[in-house]
C-alpha cells in the first residue's frame, strides 16, 4: 500500500469505519510513522469538533409541514381507482348514518360532537377571525378539526398523526386568532 493510499484511508481510520485487512495495514503503517500518528490525531480532533457542533434543524416545524403536504397527496398517491372511491363513499355513508343515530341518542346540546378522533384542545377563535386565516393557522400548528363548533362556537382540535401536541399547543396559544384554548372536558 503506497503512502498516498494510506493517506486516503486515514480519515476512515479516524471515523472508525475501516475494517479487515485495510485496517490492519493502515494501523501498521501509522504505528511506524510519527507523522501519520500526528495526522491521525488531527483528523480525529477535526471529526470530534464537527460532531460536537450543535446545529439548527427544522425539527417539529418541518415535520408538521411534511405531514401537511403528505396529507394533501394521499388521495392522488394511494387511491386512484374508481371502485376504491365507491367503497369509500359507501363506507362514509354508513359512518354518517351510524354517527347520526348515535348523536340522536347521546347528544348534549351544550357539548361537542366528536368525529372519531380524541381532541387535544378545545379552542375558541376570535369573532373577526377569517376562515382562510384559521385554515392557515391549523396547517401551521399541524392540527385538524375533529369536533364542533359547539353552541358556544368552540372547536375540538387534534394533532395530525405523529405530531406533538405540545408544539401545536404552543403555536395555537401564541396566535391572535385564538381567543381561548383549553383541554377537552373529561367524560
Amino acid at each position: 500500500m503506497t503512502r498516498e493510499e494510506i493517506g486516503a484511508l486515514l480519515p476512515f481510520l479516524a471515523n472508525e469505519t475501516l475494517t479487515g485487512d485495510e485496517r490492519t495495514r493502515v494501523e501498521t503503517a501509522v504505528a511506524d510513522d510519527p507523522a501519520l500518528q500526528q495526522e491521525l490525531q488531527a483528523l480525529r480532533a477535526i471529526r470530534a469538533t464537527m460532531q460536537a457542533e450543535d446545529s439548527y434543524s427544522p425539527a417539529e416545524i418541518g415535520l408538521a409541514r411534511l405531514l401537511r403536504d403528505v396529507e394533501k397527496e394521499v388521495p392522488q398517491k394511494r387511491i386512484h381507482r374508481p371502485w376504491v372511491w365507491q367503497s369509500i363513499a359507501a363506507a362514509l355513508l354508513v359512518a354518517v348514518v351510524a354517527q347520526t343515530l348515535l348523536t340522536q341518542r347521546t347528544a348534549d346540546p351544550g357539548g361537542y360532537q366528536l368525529a372519531g378522533e380524541d381532541a387535544a384542545f378545545v379552542v375558541g377563535f376570535s369573532l373577526d377571525a377569517r376562515e382562510g386565516d384559521i385554515r392557515a393557522l391549523l396547517l401551521d400548528a399541524g392540527v385538524m378539526i375533529v369536533g364542533g363548533p359547539s353552541a358556544l362556537g368552540l372547536y375540538e382540535l387534534a394533532p395530525i398523526d405523529g405530531l406533538s401536541a405540545d408544539s401545536a399547543g404552543a403555536i395555537l396559544a401564541a396566535s391572535d386568532l385564538v381567543e381561548s384554548i383549553d383541554l377537552p372536558e373529561e367524560d
Partner: peptide, 23 residues
C-alpha cells in the same frame, strides 16, 4: 404502505443529519 406515523418516526431519526448535510 402509506403509514404516516412511520414517516414521522423516520423523519425524527434522520432529519437532523440530512439537514446538516444539505446545509
Amino acid at each position: 404502505h402509506g403509514d404516516k406515523q412511520a414517516l414521522a418516526a423516520l423523519y425524527r431519526v434522520l432529519e437532523k443529519p440530512v439537514f446538516r448535510f444539505i446545509q
